[in-house]
């Protein structure tokens, strides 16, 4: 939303501003992703079962000076055998224009469940991780990153 100087506010502008204010109350999450969109995605993936909050290792900087390149790595304890392994890991960002960031598909051949990549963060926000186990269980965790310069362009 644009910032208006008080003296230049005309009647027309005022109506627009009231409209914008109203729509931001009704649709507060329309311009960026949000924690609600992330929880909706988690519900969608888990078929409504939801995921258990757990202590998975998700490594992100506490403060990212440049949101264009934020290193994220995770490690999930699992025996990674044919019977018991982590199938998929999702990463979501609740303050980016879209919540989806990445989806990793693992196989027991990897021997352990971890990965590292670099992501863009447009502003200070939570990064969520969702792990899908082969036994049908889900686990989630999140980590807050303070972003000094946003990295989504625009």
């Amino acid at each position: 939303m644009k910032l208006y100087k008080l003296k230049t506010v005309t009647r027309r502008d005022a109506i627009f501003m009231i409209g914008a204010l109203g729509s931001s109350i009704m649709f507060p999450f329309s311009s960026t992703a949000s924690s609600k969109m992330v929880s909706d995605r988690i519900n969608e993936i888990t078929n409504g079962k939801g995921a258990e909050e757990s202590d998975l290792f998700l490594d992100l900087p506490e403060i990212a000076e440049n949101g264009n390149q934020v290193k994220v790595s995770f490690e999930i304890e699992s025996p990674m055998t044919d019977k018991d392994y982590v199938k998929e890991v999702y990463i979501f960002a609740d303050g980016n224009p879209a919540p989806n960031v990445a989806k990793f598909t693992f196989t027991p051949a990897l021997g352990s469940c971890s990965a590292t990549t670099r992501i863009r963060l447009s502003k200070t926000q939570n990064v969520h991780l969702l792990a899908a186990y082969s036994n049908g269980k889900y686990a989630t965790t999140k980590s807050k990153v303070k972003v000094t310069i946003g990295g989504c362009g625009g």
Partner: peptide, 13 residues
């Protein structure tokens, strides 16, 4: 949301 010049690291047994 993945950065320019995507870097990906993963384990392998």
């Amino acid at each position: 949301s993945i950065s320019t010049n995507p870097y990906i690291a993963f384990p392998f047994k």
